[in-house]
Structures are given as structure tokens and as C-alpha cells.
Design a protein around this nucleic acid. Structure first.
Length: 774
DNA sequence: TATAGGCATACGATAGGCAGGGC
DNA sequence: TCCCTGCCTATCGTATGCCT
């Protein structure tokens, strides 16, 4: 029988009492298919340098007992960091291979590879069966279990370029709360579960025993039968809580296909057999554009309606007791937002999964470094590369990008020239990869005296090969996009593809300098940044020689007078002499620099305001000061008079003086970056976190603490309170005038000649003297 | 349960200078 | 005159979050 289906997961299951690979998939109507491959054998490699084949067989025979019959050993040639080695490939049943690698790790220790990669992942890579792709399967022994068609694999072939099927999605959110701080699954019942299937919101509220509402969730899942279950903080919070609640009943959470229970797999991720479990929190955590990692930010980014009021989880229990309706309305907004956000992100998720080979429900759980690594592993084995082990190494830093001191003040017509993908281009051009770096300058080597390493030119590195392929594939897609309608399904998918390829290419340099990388190269990363510094220095020299005035520069960009002829000459020189591509990134009609690097504000040609590095973009400044800085710098760049700017400032001061500011705009947000006991100095957010901890809240790394400064004497940390407990009568309004608003405005006005003294006297209510009459 | 290094900034901790007072 | 105490200031260290 032949099935044309879309694969979304591979897992280890069983067939006739033996472990087998299960391939979960759906057809274009969303019907489920499970294809079983009983023939895949797990394996690992052991380097022949460390053991003879006779000794190897001897150990395995002695240690494995009956399992030895399930093992096969072959001599193969593979590469390790580009160098050919003879390996013994030990393959067989999953259990036998696992046991064999355990035994050899103990007896031999070194030289064992790929025993640390899950068989289902090896299957994806070796068979080239990429998740989130379409395939034609030939199967036999077809049966139906529940509503899943099950067949045994005979062969398959990929089908290129089909749009994704419509997936059924169920979003889930819960109401957890406790009178005593952090809800504890040991004592605190689940207060409510809310789901959304794209049409109906269902809310199940506690009425007696919470077992009943968890049952209702399970019923919902089997009724909707979703391909995807999506939530916010599912893996770290919701699934562990629900499974813990059910432990009392000695049963699991039954939300998988074919009666499967959700179970914890690697790294705290929960696996729901046969369904894709997506936690959007893991997506926002990885992206710096989301400053506070909230669902509201994500929803705003996806251009969705925001809730009328957001309720902090610290207040869930309060609302549950006092104003339940409001809480439920908010959580209903959440499930809809989660659902719709997933719908907006699904192309990205599926494309990322398809390209990296990481199944979709795990792709956000993997860090961006690991995502890149899976891609390298996949491409590497096509070149016969064995995947190296992650080894323990000493952490070492190396010099990074070059940053110029800016020329402070207001400048007109400044162009930003930057290098197109500077680091990836350097890595390709100079062949930089862990295996191409050498210490000696002998032979076919391009040697860099300044850092004492060279790069071989007689072999092509794996990383540059991969980068070239990424860039080539992306260029192909981008040229195809030109002829497509941007609103079409095909365009959107291809656009998602080219974006993922770009992200992967841009990750490779950082990956190579990451101590946890399998393809780590301190020397390689050092050479990349060295060449980056050299490239930018040479361009600066050339720009000066051409007569361009340089205002600023950072890593791969220089800010110069917008003289198009000279700039074109410079760009041509870069291409001819350095062999790299530079371009005009943007042009500022006006740009303001302070004395500081990495901080400026500009007005672009199209009239938009861009603020970089200044208080306005930092979450550890209160919104009020941030907004004031934005308004005043915008006016400044748009040519407002000094008087106008001072008037604006005076207004901002006045509203604080009169306590007319919404206290939500006074919250300062800071992240907890380590266990509370490891802090060496007192700080407001730490003190507030400690008090929350006393109230029973578990304070974990990565949490954000929002606080407000109250009146009183002594250091700030003694006067900070959690924002949910702030009272306008106790707020230290002076702190907000002198330590938030004033510095943010001094920063942008002092470079244009408005002194700190002037501003300070306005802040004090003096200067012009009108304040006393209002 | 980290892709890299470079950088600004605030505030707490700490040391040193100095004045004033008591013996 | 010596020494202790409290206050002020300069400097250093810690912590955070940004930029490319």
C-alpha cells in the first residue's frame, strides 16, 4: 500500500516486542498514519586507535551475555575533524547497543562517538527523513489502531515542495494559585483549565475535585484530536503540575495518541506521543526582542489584540477569590492568543524543524547553538564526518569586534555602511573551520602572525562548506521570491525558509566560539574576529583617504558623511581589494551621539526615529523615563527649539511632581540571573525577590522582578517593593524625578549644549519659576 | 538547562581623609 | 597630644542589559 503523508515526528516505539522506529505522520486531510520501521539498527563508532577489533569483540562477548547475538561489528572509514580514521562501527538492537556503549565507555573510555545521539535522531539524519516534510511511503501489514492507520515500512521517497497540511491545534492554559504563594501540586488543586480549538473556548473550573477538570482536559484532547498542543510554559510549569497532581491517583496525563501519556524526556521537555507539544515560552526566551518574555509581548509582536487588563500570576489567587470573572476573561484571552500566535509561527516552526532535522516539538527546546549543531551533524555525515563528542574545556575569551569612539553631538546626513554577513563571509573566504586551523606556517597555509595561527588551504573546511551551501540555498530562494505574489502561501513558506537559512548562517561564528560546541574552535573564532577587525580598520583607512569623515563604527559598520560618490568608491574598493561586500545600510538625516559607544539616536530618511542602546530601549529603566526620552529626542532630531525641549521636560517633571503618573509606568524590571544565595551585593530586585520568596514564591533564574522605589532613608534596596504592593502615597516621586527622568534626559540633551545644571534646576522646580503658580 | 565579545551605567561596598570631641 | 567616631568622597566591584 502507498501513503502520501507529512512526517512530524520520529520516536522509539516497538514492533513485535522489539524496539522499532515509529514515524508519526498525517495526510492532507489530517488523518493519522504511523509507519513502523523495525529494521533500523542503532550504532556507535569506536576509533581503532584505542582498541583492536579482536579485543573489542572479546569485551562485548564477555559483557553483553545474550545481547551479544544482537550486535554486529564492522570496520569502516570515516572522518573525524576532516581526518580519515578507521573506526569499528558497533550496531544492533537499541538495548544491546546501549549496553555495549556503556561497557566500552567504562573499559576503554576514549574514542567512542555518536553513542550520545538518540537513535530516532540518527534515523532522521541517516535516512534523510526530515521532519515536517512530505514523503511517499510503501507499507505492508496495514492495520488501524484507534483512528491511526498503522503500517510497516518497505520504502519511502521524498516529495518536494508541497505546502504544509492544515494542522489541528488545541491551545491550553491553566489557572493555578494558592493562598500561600507559589501553588504546590502537593496541596493546591488546579483551579481551572481553559482550552481553545480555533472555534470554541472551553473553561473547566474547579468544582469539588480537580481530578474532574483534568479528566475534562483529556476528554477535550481526545474529542479535538489535535495534531498540535500549544501553550505558554507548558514544559516548565503546566505539564509538571498536572502530572504531579495525577501521581496521587497513580496515573499519568492521557493526552497522547493511542492511549499515550505525557512523559518527561530530555532537558525537562515533555513528550506527548503522537502529538506535537509546543511551548511558546521557549520561543520568546530565545529572542532578545522580547524584553520580559511575556505572552502579551509575543501577542503584540504578532499584531494581535492585547487584553484589556493583564493579570500577574502573583495575583491569580486574589482574583480567583475576589473577581473570578475578570481572571477567567483574561485566561480566555490567553488561550486565544496562544492559539493565534502558534498559527502565525507555524511556518517558521515547521521550516526550522525541516531544515535542522529536529522534530517540531523539540525544536524550540533546543538552544540556537544546538539547532545549528544538528544541522552541521546532518550535513557532516554526508561528507563522512563522525560527530565529535562534547568535551570539557577550559573557558577562554578572545578579542572580539572593533568599536570606534563616536564623535559626540548632532550630525546631519550620515550614512551607515556595513558589511554583508561579515563573519560568515570571512569564514568562507578564509576557509575557517575547526579542522583547518594549524599552528605552523609550513605547507599550504595562510598564516596570521598577529595571532599565531594559520589556516590550511589544501583542504576545504566543513563549516565553510556548510556556510556556502546555506548562502547558496538562501540566494536561490530569494531569487524565486521575486517572481511570487507576497500574499501567496508559497511565498510565505519560502520566505520562512530563507529566514531560517540566514539565522543558521549567522549562528555559525558564535557556535564555533562556544565552549559547549562539538565543533568548537577557539583559534578559529579568534581568527574570524581578528580578520573582522582588520577588515574594518582597512576600510576606515580607505574612507579617510577618500576624504570621508568618520563619525562612528561598530564591528562591521562605519558611519560616514553621506557623500554618495565617495561611498560608492569605497564600496568598490572593498569589493576589489578585500573581496568582501559592503553596502549602504541606511541613511540618517540627523543623528545624535553622546561620548559613549553603542548608544545613539537618529532620524532616518523615511522619517522614523531609531534609538540604540539608550535608556529608552532598556527594560531596567521605568517606562515613564523611557517614554520621556523618546519624546524629547524625537523633538530634538526633528528640529525643535531649545525652549520647546525644556518645556517638554518641564511637563514630564510636573506630572511626576503632581503624582499624576500611572504607577505601572514607574516599574523597573530586572532579571534574576542566579540563585538568590549567590548574590554578593544587595540590590533592589534581589531584596524584593527575597521578600517574595518569604511569601512562598519560588524564585528561579530567568524570572523578572518588577519593583517600585518608596520614600524613606537608606539605600534603594531597603526601599524597593514589588510593584503589586506599590501605593502612590508611599512612592518616592523624587527618586523618579532625579534618578530616572533627569539622567535619561541629561544624556540626550547635554551633547547639544543643554547643561545638566539647567535641567537639574528645572527638575527642582526652579529656573523659570512658573511651576510655583500651577 | 549558554552562539560570541564589547560596552555603558547604576549603585553598593569599602577605604581613606578629615574634623571634632573626649581624655 | 592622642585616639576614636562619624561623615564625606573617591574608587572599586557587582550586576544588568544592551550592540553587532
Amino acid at each position: 500500500m502507498e501513503w502520501i503523508v507529512w512526517v512530524y515526528d520520529t520516536a522509539i516505539g516497538e514492533y513485535k516486542n522489539r524496539e522499532a522506529i515509529w514515524i508519526w505522520s498525517i495526510d492532507s486531510n489530517g488523518e493519522y498514519y504511523l509507519i513502523i520501521d523495525p529494521n533500523f539498527r542503532d550504532y556507535f563508532y569506536i576509533d581503532s586507535k584505542y582498541i583492536s577489533i579482536r579485543k573489542l569483540n572479546q569485551i562485548l562477548r564477555m559483557e553483553l551475555g545474550n545481547l551479544y547475538r544482537d550486535i554486529e561489528v564492522n570496520e569502516v572509514t570515516r572522518r573525524l575533524y576532516g581526518v580519515e580514521h578507521i573506526f569499528y562501527k558497533v550496531s544492533g538492537g537499541f538495548e544491546a547497543v546501549k549496553k555495549a556503549s556503556d561497557v566500552l565507555s567504562k573499559k576503554v573510555g576514549e574514542g567512542i562517538y555518536e553513542d550520545d545521539i538518540r537513535p530516532s535522531q540518527k534515523y532522521i539524519m541517516d535516512m534523510n527523513l526530515n521532519p515536517c516534510g512530505w514523503y511517499r511511503f510503501k507499507v505492508s501489514n496495514v492495520t488501524t489502531i484507534d483512528n491511526v492507520s498503522v503500517g510497516v515500512l518497505e520504502e519511502f521517497t521524498p516529495i518536494e515542495e508541497r505546502p504544509y497540511p492544515e494542522v489541528r491545534v488545541l491551545s491550553v492554559d491553566v489557572i493555578l494559585g494558592s493562598r500561600y504563594g507559589e501553588p504546590d501540586p502537593e496541596y493546591d488543586q488546579v483551579l481551572g483549565i481553559v482550552t481553545y480549538d480555533g472555534e470554541n473556548v472551553n473553561n473547566y473550573l474547579l468544582d469539588g475535585n480537580d481530578y474532574n477538570i483534568i479528566r475534562l482536559l483529556e476528554t477535550d484532547v481526545s474529542r479535538v484530536d489535535p495534531h498540535v498542543i500549544v501553550g505558554f510554559e507548558l514544559n516548565q510549569y503546566i505539564w509538571p503540575y498536572l502530572t504531579e497532581r495525577l501521581k496521587k491517583l497513580r496515573r499519568g496525563l492521557k493526552i497522547g495518541k493511542i492511549g499515550g501519556e505525557a512523559h518527561q524526556s530530555v532537558l525537562g521537555h515533555f513528550s506527548v506521543g503522537g502529538r506535537v507539544n509546543i511551548d511558546l515560552k521557549e520561543y520568546v526566551d530565545d529572542l532578545p526582542i522580547f524584553q520580559r518574555k511575556t505572552l502579551e509581548e509575543l501577542a503584540g509582536y504578532m499584531k494581535m489584540d492585547l487584553p484589556e487588563y493583564a493579570i500577574d500570576k502573583y495575583l491569580y489567587y486574589d482574583y480567583w477569590s475576589r473577581d473570578r470573572e475578570k481572571l477567567i476573561k483574561y485566561v480566555e484571552w490567553r488561550v486565544k492568543a496562544i492559539y493565534n500566535t502558534f498559527k502565525g509561527l507555524e511556518d517558521h516552526i515547521f521550516v526550522l524543524s525541516n531544515i535542522t532535522g529536529i522534530p517540531p516539538d523539540y525544536v524550540f527546546t533546543a538552544s540556537s547553538g544546538r539547532q545549528a549543531e544538528y544541522y552541521i551533524m546532518k550535513i557532516g555525515r554526508r561528507h563522512g564526518e563522525v560527530t565529535p563528542k562534547v568535551s570539557l574545556r577550559r573557558y577562554r575569551t578572545y578579542p572580539g569586534g572593533l568599536v570606534l569612539n563616536p564623535k559626540p553631538g548632532l550630525h546631519d546626513n550620515i550614512a551607515v555602511i556595513d558589511y554583508k554577513s561579515m563573519y560568515p563571509s570571512i569564514m568562507i573566504k578564509y576557509n575557517i573551520s575547526p579542522e583547518t586551523i594549524v599552528k605552523s606556517s609550513e605547507g599550504n597555509v595562510v598564516y596570521f602572525d598577529e595571532i599565531g595561527y594559520g589556516v590550511r588551504s589544501d583542504i576545504r573546511g566543513l563549516i565553510p562548506t556548510i556556510l556556502e551551501e546555506l548562502i547558496r540555498r538562501r540566494d536561490e530562494i530569494r531569487s524565486r521570491l521575486k517572481s511570487l505574489d507576497p500574499s501567496s502561501r508559497e511565498y510565505k513558506l519560502l520566505d520562512a525558509r530563507q529566514r531560517v537559512l540566514k539565522i543558521l548562517a549567522n549562528t555559525m561564528y558564535g557556535y564555533m566560539g562556544w565552549i559547549g560546541a562539538r565543533w568548537y574552535s577557539y583559534e578559529g573564532a579568534s581568527i574570524v574576529t581578528y580578520l573582522g577587525r582588520r577588515t574594518i580598520s582597512l576600510s576606515i583607512d580607505k574612507a579617510k583617504e577618500l576624504g570621508l569623515n568618520i563619525i562612528y563604527g561598530d564591528t562591521d559598520s562605519i558611519f560616514v558623511d553621506y557623500n554618495i560618490d565617495l561611498i560608492n568608491e569605497l564600496i568598490k574598493w572593498v569589493s576589489d581589494t578585500l573581496g568582501l561586500e559592503a553596502k549602504i545600510d541606511k541613511v540618517f538625516k540627523k543623528i545624535l551621539f553622546t561620548e559613549a559607544k553603542k548608544r545613539y539616536a537618529g532620524l532616518t530618511e523615511d522619517g522614523s526615529i531609531e534609538i540604540v542602546g539608550l535608556e529608552y530601549v532598556r527594560r531596567d529603566w521605568c517606562d515613564y523615563a523611557r517614554e520621556a526620552q523618546y519624546v524629547i529626542v524625537k523633538n530634538l532630531l526633528e528640529g525643535a527649539s531649545k525652549d520647546k525641549l525644556l518645556d517638554l521636560f518641564r511637563d514630564f517633571v510636573r506630572r511626576l511632581r503632581r503624582k499624576e503618573v500611572d504607577i505601572r509606568k514607574l516599574i523597573i524590571w530586572e532579571q534574576i540571573t542566579r540563585p538568590l544565595s549567590e548574590y554578593k551585593v544587595n540590590a533592589p530586585h534581589i531584596e524584593v525577590a527575597k521578600s517574595l520568596s518569604q511569601e512562598g514564591w519560588r524564585i528561579k533564574k530567568g524570572m523578572f522582578i518588577g519593583y517600585i522605589i518608596n520614600k524613606g532613608s537608606g539605600p534603594l534596596y531597603k526601599r524597593a517593593v514589588h510593584y503589586t504592593k506599590a501605593d502612590p502615597n508611599y512612592i518616592d516621586w523624587d527618586y523618579y524625578i532625579y534618578n530616572q527622568l533627569l539622567p535619561a534626559i541629561v544624556r540626550i540633551l547635554s551633547p547639544v549644549g543643554i547643561s545638566e545644571k539647567t535641567l537639574e534646576s528645572i527638575a527642582r522646580g526652579g529656573g523659570v519659576g512658573l511651576d510655583m503658580f500651577v
